[in-house]
Write a protein that binds this DNA or RNA. Structure first.
Length: 592
RNA sequence: GCCGAUGUAGCUCAGUGGUAGAGCAGCUGUUUCGUAAACAGCAGGUCACCGGUUCAAGUCCGGUCAUCGGCUCCA
């Protein structure tokens, strides 16, 4: 049974109504809009006459409890027509008091059933308490079923999700069948916070931010920088195998290039302020790498025999994200895309797209990510933010879905989630707090080749227009590292761990042997790279060294004391399994 | 950007208008240790910043900045 059909879903929906009833009683003039159940709870968007503060949640909660205890039966009422519905919404109020509900009513197509949910009861003072809401339902049968609930937070939310509309106050809450389940959920939330990449990023020494550098501009620390290198090494090797060629391009470029690409027109408000030189030329900090790669493509005549051309670059870009949306390295203002642009003939598009999907599947497998979904972002017909001809959009969308079908990649089509220049396939994954983020992406682009008048000479000696594929299997190194950190709770798999092995001498007299062991390990190649080893020769107890290396999630600790020097062994401790006992270095290495 | 919240030592946090505190980390000394914190001492602060109220502000009020949750937007 799906969540939408479950009793829990109805319970949460009813909890939203109960909250609306409490709010209506407590705040005269509060206008209700919508209040649906969501993945982990519910919310209700309300237009309050005065700002609603978070500390008022307790008051609302208490009132909800009182109303729940009245054991109000919840009944469904279907009205005959919109006039009757209108009267029921207004219930003696003026139309301007119920603008949102009336708008919702107007949006219901004629002929469709219009239903209301009604809950009412007589309280101890003999007064009738009631609440009627325009609603499709379904609901539970009685408000007394709503026992385990909690209001969580207050947020602003635009009416109908449109910034041009008024911002309403959204109150988030959650409800469960039992108090235990509620407690468990709240406990899990606390646990999830410990996995937050911002917390682990600091504890593990991966990256930092400084107010003296700027919002959303991460500083990569040695351990984090190592992680980046391991990831880029891996991907680079995969790409070389698949015929990609590396390129490197600057961080800034002349604005004219970006005017031609269309970025300035569509992207201006997301770009850092422009720079002007003494000759009055304007430069921009690049928000995307594509125009530079296009310049490289265009620098010479291209034959159909040269195609596909695949230019790859770990390109650092800067985007001026709104202050409220910067989130650690999940959403930074400076980040590095594992970018590549493929210039292909229309006939090669399908095969190349499949090749990219195959690369992505390889990457996901290596990273150990399973819990993701694929989304095909298509054009929202109602929006004017897109560039390019409809025919090309249709062909590109077809190419994407065909490739996915052939690669047996399950996907959902999501209108409105295309890039401004073309449709795309995105890989979506959730972070520790359950928020979904886009990681890898492949985008088909007929638009930029046209804007830049890209050509190749075909078999017929005539010029033809190539198609471009933009793709980034990680998406960005920053976001991918954030997501991996949260997925693994900081305990990266061995091949990825910034420090793979810590050598722990028990006493000072073992330091020399520890360093020798470390040197030997560093000369050992694992997964095409030298092993990453650290010696912990601080004058601390063994227990303390173990504790701290355990906290740093180092996969293996090699402990070296008198017994080992004598026997020619090391004490091996596994991050998960604990003490594995003494063994020779050879047998340790062969088990890696 | 907008709505709400938070900002005290490197980190986690206490401090209820009257002389800024703890644990961990750091430093110094002692300890040389076999699988998750040895012991002792020392040092560490413009209580985010600016302004106001008050005899007196970490504490009350206003503004700014940063961070956190959400909306919109995005890799």
């Amino acid at each position: 049974m799906s969540y939408e059909q479950s009793h829990l879903y109805r319970l949460r929906h009813s909890a939203a109504h109960l909250m609306a009833q409490a709010v209506s009683e407590l705040y005269a003039g509060a206008k209700l809009s919508i209040g649906p159940p969501i993945e982990n709870g519910f919310y209700y968007d309300i237009d309050f006459p005065e700002p609603f503060k978070e500390d008022e949640l307790v008051k609302v909660e208490n009132r909800m409890r009182e109303l729940a205890n009245l054991k109000q039966p919840i009944t469904r009422r279907v009205v005959a027509n919109k006039e009757e519905a209108r009267a029921l919404i207004l219930n003696g109020h003026k139309p301007e008091d119920e603008p949102y509900k009336l708008e919702l009513l107007d949006a219901i197509p004629d002929g469709e059933e219009v239903s209301f949910y009604d809950q009412r009861a007589i309280d101890k003072q003999g007064k009738e308490r009631s609440f009627v809401d325009l609603c499709r339902g379904p609901h539970v049968e009685n408000t007394s079923e709503i026992k385990a609930f909690k209001l969580l937070s207050v947020a602003g939310a635009y009416w109908r999700g449109d910034v041009k509309n008024k911002q309403l106050t959204r109150i988030y809450g959650t409800a469960f069948e039992t108090k235990d389940e509620l407690e468990q959920y709240l406990h899990n939330l606390e646990e999830a916070k410990k996995r937050d990449h911002r917390v682990l990023g600091r504890e593990l020494g991966l990256f930092m931010f400084s107010p003296r550098v700027g919002t959303g501009l991460p500083l990569w620390l040695p351990k984090g920088a190592t992680l980046r290198h391991v990831m880029t090494d891996f991907l680079q090797k995969e790409q070389v195998k698949r015929g990609y060629e590396p390129v490197v391009t600057p961080h800034i470029g002349n604005i004219k290039l970006y005017e031609k690409s269309g970025h300035i027109q569509t992207y201006r408000d997301k770009m850092f302020p422009f720079m002007e030189d003494e000759e009055k030329e304007t430069y921009i900090l690049k928000p995307m790498n594509c125009p530079f790669h296009i310049e490289i493509y265009q620098a010479q005549m291209r034959s159909y025999r040269d195609l596909p051309v695949r230019y790859a670059e770990f390109g650092t870009v800067h985007r001026y994200e709104q202050s409220g949306e910067v989130t650690g390295i999940l959403r930074a203002r400076g980040f590095t895309q594992d970018d590549a642009h493929l210039f292909v003939t229309p006939g090669q598009l399908q095969e190349e797209f499949i090749g990219v999907v195959d690369l992505m599947q390889t990457v996901l497998k290596k990273l150990g990510l399973k819990d993701f979904r694929a989304r095909v972002g298509t054009k929202d017909p109602g929006s004017d933010k897109y560039v390019g001809h409809d025919d090309n959009w249709t062909a590109a969308t077809q190419a994407i879905t065909d490739a996915c079908d052939q690669m047996q990649m399950d996907y959902e089509v999501s209108p409105g989630d295309a890039a401004f220049y073309g449709p795309k396939l995105d890989l979506m994954i959730k972070d520790a707090l359950g928020r979904e983020w886009q990681m890898g992406t492949v985008q088909v682009d007929y638009n930029l080749p046209e804007r830049f008048e890209l050509e190749y000479v075909g078999e017929d000696s005539k010029p033809h227009r190539p198609v471009m594929i933009h793709r980034a299997p990680f998406g960005s190194l920053e976001r991918m590292i954030a997501l991996l950190t949260e997925q693994f709770a900081g305990a990266f798999p061995f091949w990825l761990a910034p420090t793979q092995i810590a050598v722990l001498p028990i006493a000072d007299r073992h330091n020399e042997a520890a360093i020798a062991l470390s040197d030997r390990l560093k000369d050992t190649t694992y997964d095409t790279r030298a092993l990453r080893v650290e010696v912990d020769d601080r004058r601390e107890s063994l227990n303390k060294k173990i504790r701290e290396n355990q906290r740093m999630k180092v996969p293996y600790m090699l402990i070296l004391g008198d017994k080992d020097l004598e026997a020619g062994t090391v004490g091996v401790r596994d991050r998960e399994k604990g003490d594995l006992g003494a063994m020779t270095v050879e047998s340790f290495l062969s088990n890696l």
